[in-house]
Design a binder for these strands. Structure first.
Lengths: 342, 342
DNA sequence: TTGTACGCGTTATCAC
DNA sequence: GTGATAACGCGTACAA
């Protein structure tokens, strides 16, 4: 069946004019007579002519595609970022090619190489856990040195010179911890991941800073470092039983949820007996019972910002090598898991 | 800085041979002498030559890109489908271009047109709510008539001839309802959406069929049709207060969660006093407290299946117009919100 | 006003 | 063994 896509050539032959005449006529060029233009445009419309994107890409050396490489898509935060990127990019006429690194260094490299050979005009990415662990950024370096614009978001590295979008994780944790302190909580447990994650480290910093500013000692026993992506409820339970905190701060949604499960099972009332705040304001926090007060990371805004920065770079003629780092401010979304301050 | 990507032409000039010699040498052609090949290959490797995807696409009329159009990405089910598509497609050397219709007919059309002009080799998509409501499938028709392969999944239409992947929603609802009946529940409430969604309709069918097969009357008062995507907790509460069911079946995750909230607030114990089963086995159901028994839709498998069907069509030479509909069987994941049958 | 020629980067065919 | 040429579809500088 394959009703061959119609090209300029087809139109030209059919109407017995040259290809360039057709091309110009369809661009409404002044060079072409009204008659010819009308004839050609009518024909093109009839046969639903649309220029071939690939040919245009080859000619312009612009694909109007953005490559996005993220560690995981089954993750509310990344999902909102993609939505933001899509929003902005589509409005500007760009398509979004999504690749998943699956938290693996190797996959990240493969995906970058796949896309870097002309498929995209620029990258937006967040480092995989594997890459953060390995601290090998050569694939990023190669790409940026080739002159392909890149924007890193959330999980970034200082070793690469490029635009970046971050949220102020230190500040987010600071505000959250402060909120708990203001409620009168003094024994605030921190549920976090291993240290190689830049974001976890920063959240830890903000937590400690808030305690110090408040005049409290930082007690390392109150901090539980869990392996990434691995919900070990028993470990959380053991930890919480042992230290019996009056508040929990979690660097993600899921640890917070499970922290809440554990204390609820012990018969504690959230938030009367214990307050809980989580990071990453996602569906779990929002729809939990009680709903969990969270530090919102504004993923959608982050995506839009990243897309904006990238497209500006892509479309800018001048080759000045100046890179910006945009820092978004997190917001504390107060819900039912903390005490209402009137 | 823009260290221009190196091309065959550059290599040819540098090594003082013809472009075609370079091309052949890099393909390890037998035609070229060992010496020349080695020289050229070494040079190419040194300068990290990679063929330009766009040029190859133009030549081959194959982009190695798959276009995926889904209604929403902030939705666990679609997210797992994408993961499945990515898995399979990447392994086959394809990139995935994701576009969001945002449940809007217009956006769906625009995205399709953007991609249909050469950017992709085929489509995988799930209809937007807008399209299902409007019942206008001309954009799909045009694309398939152009000979672009397409696979529809989950939200499909019988008006378009193409490959399809579905789960057996009737069966899923049947099994879930049966499970509740087997527990001894007799007053099973159904929380569903408006009728124009093919999936909701089918789940409703399965629910009714199970009741009938069990010899029970279907009582329309036990069915609450809520507007799509709009969580009206008050309405759910009013409904549940009025009918006082001993079980709830929800056609999605979110209604199930809120149903549970409402009955828990009334002081009922889940699952002792009331059982709950939801559709779409996502994070909310899994991490709820208690965790919610769910009908798993196997999104990842669905994505893989769709990608497999599409790529087969894309790569098949013969133009036979034969379309398959693959029906996946749902699975009931038993959790804490239903009674344990020993 | 229209058409010719060339280039984007690659590959395949055919001539030398 | 190597190279010239055409072609994929488009746009544009230049010629007619």
């Amino acid at each position: 069946m394959l009703k061959q896509k119609i090209t300029l050539k087809h139109i030209a032959k059919e109407l017995d004019v040259s290809i360039s005449t057709v091309s110009k006529a369809l661009k409404n060029s002044e060079e072409i007579s009204r008659d010819t233009k009308e004839k050609i445009q009518a024909f093109a419309k009839l046969y639903n002519y649309k220029p071939n994107n690939i040919a245009i890409s080859l000619k312009n050396k612009r694909t109007k595609n953005i490559g996005v490489i993220i560690p995981d898509i089954v993750h509310h935060f990344f999902t909102t970022v993609i939505r933001g990127i899509e929003n902005y990019a589509n409005a500007k006429g760009y398509n979004v090619i999504v690749c998943l690194s699956d938290e693996s260094f190797d996959k990240e490299v493969i995906n970058m190489e796949m896309l870097a050979n002309g498929s995209i005009d620029g990258f937006i990415m967040s480092l995989s856990a594997g890459t953060e662990k390995k601290k090998d950024f050569n694939h990023l370096k190669e790409v940026t040195e080739q002159g392909i614009p890149m924007v890193l978001f959330d999980r970034v590295t200082s070793e690469i010179n490029c635009d970046k979008v971050l949220i102020d994780d230190i500040q987010g944790a600071y505000v959250a911890t402060k909120k708990l302190l203001d409620e009168g909580r003094r024994k605030i447990a921190l549920l976090t991941t291993e240290d190689f994650f830049s974001v976890s480290m920063n959240r830890n910093k903000g937590y400690r800073k808030a305690l110090k500013d408040f005049g409290l000692e930082v007690n390392p026993d109150l901090v539980l470092k869990l392996p990434f992506m691995d919900i070990d409820e028993a470990k959380i339970e053991e930890f919480l039983n042992q230290i019996e905190p009056d508040a929990i701060l979690s660097v993600n949604e899921i640890f917070g949820i499970y922290g809440m499960r554990v204390v609820q099972r012990k018969g504690l009332n959230v938030p009367k007996d214990i307050s809980i705040i989580g990071f990453t304001d996602g569906l779990l926090a929002k729809h939990a019972n009680p709903s969990i007060t969270s530090v919102a990371q504004h993923g959608e805004l982050m995506g839009e910002t990243a897309a904006k920065m990238l497209i500006e770079k892509v479309e800018s003629e001048n080759e000045e090598e100046t890179y910006r780092t945009e820092i978004l401010q997190p917001t504390l979304i107060e819900r039912e898991s903390t005490l209402n301050q009137v």
